[in-house]
C-alpha cells in the first residue's frame, strides 16, 4: 500500500524540522518558551468568525457535492466496550456500500475501531482495504490506552505496534492531557515522537498518525493552540479534536482554531497536516459548516481524505437521509437507513 501523502515525511526530517523551529532540544523549558510565546487566542473573535462561517447557505447542486464530499471524508467509527466482530463486519459493510438503494453513493474514507478489532476490520474489508485516494477504505485504530491515555509508555507503544502489525493504516493516539496540563510539554512531545516511531512498518513505510488533543479537557483555546503546535512539531500527521468520550467534543471554533494552526504551519514549512474533528457532529448541516470552514481557512486542497476527516458514526445516516431527499424529492425516514 502506498504511504499516505501526509505521512510521507520521514521521522528524521520531522525531528530536524522541530529542532530548527524550536531552536533547541525539545525539552520542557524550550517547548514552554516556544509554546507560551505563541500569541494568545482572541476567543470572542474566534467564536464570531466560526459563527459567521456557519451562516453560509449551501443549496442544490453545491449541497449534493458537499454531501458526497462529507461521505468520502468520514471515518466511520465504532468505539464501544460492547463492540463485537459482528458489529465491525456490519460497520465495514456500511462503509463499503453506505446506501444499498443507491450505487452512486461514494465510500467512506476509513473505518475506525479499537486496536484488537483491526484484524476483523481488515478481514471484512478484503479487497476494499487500501488508500481512500484509490477509492478504497483504510483501517484506523485508536491506540495508546484510548480514551484516557493513562498508562505507561511501554504499554502505549505495544498497543500501537500491535494495531500496525494487524494491518491498521492509521493510528489515532491520545496525548497525555495530565502531563500537558502540568506543563510537561517535553514528555508529551517525546511520547508522540515515540508513538510515531512505533507506527513504522518493517518495510519502511509508516502508518499515518492522528494525534487526539481531547480539546474538551484542555479547557482553553490557548491550550488547544499550544497542543496543536506541540503535536505537529512532534511528528503527528493529523491533529484530531476529541475522543468522543468527553463533552464538549468537536466544536466549530476549536476546529477553526486547529485549521489556523495547520494553515500557519503550511505557510511556515510547506508541509501539510490533516485535521479531524470527531464527536458530536451528527447533522449534515453541521458537517457542511465544517467543510466551509476548512475551505475558507486552510484552503480547498484540504478537502481530501489525507488532510481532513470527520470522526463520526451517526452522521453518515443523516447525510444519507439528506441525499435520499435530494434524489427522490421527498423526505426520507430512519426506516430507510441502517440501525447502527
Amino acid at each position: 500500500m502506498p504511504a499516505p501523502t501526509s505521512a510521507g515525511t520521514s521521522l528524521v526530517t520531522a525531528r530536524e524540522r522541530a529542532l530548527a523551529v524550536l531552536g533547541g532540544e525539545p525539552d520542557d523549558a524550550t517547548l514552554r518558551r516556544y509554546l507560551h510565546g505563541i500569541a494568545g487566542v482572541d476567543a470572542v473573535g474566534l467564536e464570531q468568525r466560526a459563527a459567521g462561517l456557519a451562516t453560509r447557505s449551501i443549496k442544490t447542486s453545491s449541497k449534493m457535492w458537499a454531501l458526497d464530499k462529507i461521505i468520502s471524508l468520514i471515518d466511520l467509527t465504532t468505539l464501544e466496550g460492547a463492540d463485537t466482530p459482528g458489529k465491525v463486519r456490519s460497520l465495514v459493510a456500511k462503509a463499503v456500500n453506505p446506501d444499498p438503494t443507491d450505487a452512486t453513493v461514494p465510500r467512506v474514507a476509513a473505518v475506525c475501531v479499537y486496536g484488537d478489532l483491526v484484524p476483523d476490520a481488515v478481514d471484512a474489508l478484503g479487497g476494499a482495504h487500501g488508500d481512500p485516494d484509490d477509492g478504497l477504505i483504510s483501517v484506523a485504530a485508536v491506540a495508546t490506552a484510548f480514551p484516557s491515555g493513562r498508562s505507561s509508555l511501554d504499554i502505549k507503544l505495544a498497543d500501537t505496534a500491535d494495531a500496525v502489525a494487524a494491518g491498521a493504516d492509521e493510528i489515532d493516539m491520545v496525548i497525555d492531557r495530565g502531563a500537558f496540563l502540568a506543563g510537561r510539554y517535553g514528555l508529551v512531545f517525546d511520547q508522540i515522537a515515540a508513538v510515531k516511531e512505533a507506527c513504522r512498518r518493517p518495510d519502511g513505510t509508516s502508518a499515518s498518525l492522528k494525534v487526539i488533543l481531547e480539546t474538551g479537557e484542555l479547557v482553553t483555546y490557548d491550550n488547544v493552540r499550544r497542543a496543536s503546535w506541540l503535536s505537529i512539531l512532534a511528528g503527528g500527521d493529523f491533529i484530531k479534536t476529541s475522543t468522543g468520550k468527553v463533552q464538549p467534543a468537536a466544536t466549530l471554533p476549536v476546529t477553526l482554531l486547529m485549521l489556523e494552526v495547520v494553515r500557519d504551519w503550511h505557510l511556515m514549512t510547506g508541509h501539510r497536516i490533516g485535521v479531524k474533528p470527531a464527536g458530536g457532529i451528527r447533522a449534515s448541516k453541521d458537517a457542511i459548516r465544517y467543510l466551509v470552514t476548512v475551505a475558507e481557512t486552510a484552503g480547498e486542497q484540504w478537502l481530501q481524505p489525507h488532510l481532513f476527516r470527520f470522526g463520526a458514526s451517526s452522521l453518515l445516516n443523516d447525510v444519507l437521509l439528506q441525499r435520499q431527499k435530494m434524489t427522490t424529492g421527498h423526505y426520507s425516514g430512519a426506516d430507510y437507513v441502517t440501525i447502527d
Binding site: 421527498h330 423526505y331 425516514g333 426506516d335
Partner: peptide, 9 residues
C-alpha cells in the same frame, strides 16, 4: 404533499 410523501409518516 410533503406530509403525504414523507417516508417517516
Amino acid at each position: 404533499p410533503w406530509l403525504a410523501s414523507h417516508s417517516d409518516v
